[in-house]
Write a protein that binds this DNA or RNA. Structure first.
Length: 429
RNA sequence: GGAGGAUUGGCAGAGUGGUAAUGCACCGGACUCGAAAUCCGGCGAACCAAGCUUAUACUUGGCGCGCAGGUUCAAAUCCUGUAUCCUCCUCCA
């Protein structure tokens, strides 16, 4: 949610920033009109309410003195009706304005490359060199099925497309990856949290998923209930402090959590239909930070570096890009994506997205702190995958595959897999 | 799932139709070399709007008793719905 007072005072600048994100200027104009109308109604309504309060006091006095107040009561009956009408108008106008505001994305930072498509993103750095294969590298799902560690046929039978069974060493590898990530984040000062996997709609609004998420049917909502399966741990982690004032000395607060993420992938039909890349349910270790406004840009670099550091230890080649103004998520003021090298696809694929949402989520979810003057201020919130677990497993299978179909286990994960160094065919079924 | 109770300012806690007591905490001042104690004053710096503005400063007003509606000239008080917490029953891991 944006600061309406700020918008009012910088209308043209704001309009340009929204245009950079592909938002139609007409809706900004409409917002300004509604805002003006709303404030006019408030002035009228409040003047009448002031009068009502004054006369009510008068009536109270008259009654106490056993005098007649019929004339005043009659007049106030009319004033009351008028107030009711004005307030009804006000409510409608405010609802319309709120709805419009709720659909406006965060303002991109000046450093964000402006583009109306994903073309134009800036590569910040490239780390690691993609391995040269002296055989044709196989896609991870073929490797996984051959080794009996992934089963997409049975998951399709039991749940449907875009689900998976991890089996035996596959399941252990997934577990190794997320335990490694959690331990790394813990060492970096992130408090581990195990949050609810379903949240109410106030929470979904607070982090900026609702209302658009709902309209796009982007997730799994529980029928006859206010609950939605979390599309990312960011939702329960950020909402942890919803409607609260965080003591300033606690900032920055850093959380990390492993959770499944549930996504309908409506609109992605036909894309990444095979393998672990795009599932309805996948594990992700998430990082979230609450900071003072002046800390958040450093924190964005910091959170990105934290995600990168785990990848470096795994030895998977990756690069980091800054997304364009229109490619960023709704809530972000700036986003760095980390993409890992996928040998079978000969390209980098997203494995982490780190964003500074500035005060956008904090406004929606009322998360504040007291500054040195004792004034309430909104915190800044940041989130970053640290990292997507399923996609990590996919990257490991592809980058560390051997010609005979086996897969070497990265050294840092071996302690998490009882010292095993290689995944070989299980032949379980 | 059923029954009962609770929800008021940072905390405690009054208030059953006439417009939010009081105590603690906190802030300012007095006293003091200083502090404590005591005394005096302030205290919904939560939000919204208007006026004046560099201002989120100030003044005024609105609003404000979990939330949302309703009745009334007037609601913390009455009515309806709802959320959360507690107790008991039921159920259950």
């Amino acid at each position: 949610m944006l600061d309406m007072k700020m918008i009012r005072q910088n209308a043209e600048w704001f309009k340009q920033k929204m245009a950079d994100r592909g938002v139609d200027g007409a809706s900004v104009d409409h917002l300004m009109e509604l805002d003006q109308k709303r404030r006019d109604l408030i002035v009228k309504s409040e003047a009448l309410k002031a009068e009502r309060n004054e006369v009510s006091e008068e009536i109270s006095q008259l009654k106490r003195n056993k005098e007649n107040a019929d004339a005043q009561i009659k007049r106030m009956r009319e004033v009351g009706a008028e107030i009711k009408q004005l307030d009804a108008d006000l409510e409608t106008t405010k609802a319309e304005q709120d709805n419009l505001e709720a659909h406006l994305p965060n303002i991109p930072n000046d450093k964000v490359p402006v583009s109306l498509t994903e073309e134009g993103s800036v590569e910040l750095r490239k780390v690691g060199t993609p391995r040269k294969f002296d055989f044709e590298p196989k896609p991870h799902w073929k490797i996984g099925e051959k080794l009996d560690i992934l089963d997409f046929k049975r998951s399709a039978k039991v749940a449907g497309s875009r689900f998976v069974y991890y089996i035996g060493a596959g399941s252990m590898l997934e577990r190794a990856v997320y335990n490694f990530y959690l331990d790394e984040n813990d060492k970096a000062g992130y408090t581990e949290i195990l949050p609810p996997y379903m949240v109410n709609s106030a929470s979904m609004f607070g982090t900026g998923q609702f209302p658009k998420f709902k309209e796009n049917k982007a997730g799994f909502e529980i029928a006859d209930s206010d609950l939605t399966m979390i599309p990312t741990a960011e939702v329960p982690l950020v909402n942890f402090y919803r409607d609260e004032v965080i003591p300033a000395e606690k900032l920055p607060v850093k959380f990390t959590a492993l959770t499944p993420a549930f996504r309908s992938e409506a609109g992605s039909a036909g894309r990444d239909t095979k393998g672990l890349i795009r599932l309805h349910q996948f594990n992700k270790v998430e990082m979230v930070q609450f900071t003072k406004p002046e800390q958040s840009w450093d924190a964005l670099e910091n959170i990105t570096a934290q995600a990168e550091s785990s990848l470096k230890k795994l030895g998977i080649p990756y690069h980091v890009i800054t997304l364009t103004s229109s490619d960023m998520s709704f809530t972000a003021a700036m986003t760095h994506d980390i993409e890992v090298w996928m040998p079978s696809q000969h390209c980098y694929r997203e494995i982490s997205s780190c964003s500074n949402t500035t005060d956008f989520q904090a406004r929606r979810s009322h998360i504040q702190y007291r500054d040195e003057n004792g004034k309430l201020q909104y915190v800044h919130t940041l989130n970053g995958s640290g990292l997507a677990v399923g996609r990590t497993v996919a990257a490991i299978l592809e980058n560390f595959q051997n010609e005979d179909g086996t897969v070497n286990i990265p050294e840092v994960l071996q302690p998490y897999m009882h010292g095993k160094t290689k995944i070989t065919k299980q032949d379980l079924f």
